[in-house]
């Protein structure tokens, strides 16, 4: 059994990875190699991130690819405009 904190650590590592490399396109096995983690836990973490819609998941199983979904950004919200 994998400790929950390990999955969360990996979730956060993956999040940081994609924030730092926003145009990375990764499979769970590819990313697990980059991060030096087990493929199984990496996949678990990636799927959770996809559920949170931090990542976009294409395909299923081992061939599924993940990429970062940029959050919704508004750089100039005018406070004085009408809602």
């Amino acid at each position: 059994m994998v400790a929950e904190s390990d999955v969360i650590t990996l979730q956060m590592e993956c999040t940081l990875f994609f924030e730092n490399n926003p145009y990375a396109i990764e499979t769970s096995s590819g990313l697990s190699k980059r991060l030096g983690r087990s493929q199984q836990v990496t996949e678990q973490a990636l799927n959770r991130l996809a559920e949170m819609s931090i990542l976009e998941k294409n395909g299923q199983g081992m061939r599924a690819i993940y990429r970062y979904k940029a959050p919704y950004i508004q750089t100039e919200v005018d406070l004085n405009a009408y809602d």
């Binding site: 949170m52 819609s53 931090i54 959050p71 919704y72 950004i73 508004q74 750089t75 100039e76 919200v77 005018d78 406070l79 004085n80 809602d83």
Partner: peptide, 25 residues
């Protein structure tokens, strides 16, 4: 000035902006 920046996930526009303005105020 009267401008703010927002970054959000899981929020639809324009609800997100409305809420962001509310927070800012």
């Amino acid at each position: 000035d009267g401008k703010i920046q927002m970054v959000a996930r899981g929020m639809q526009s324009p609800k997100g902006e409305t809420y962001a303005k509310d927070i800012a105020r």
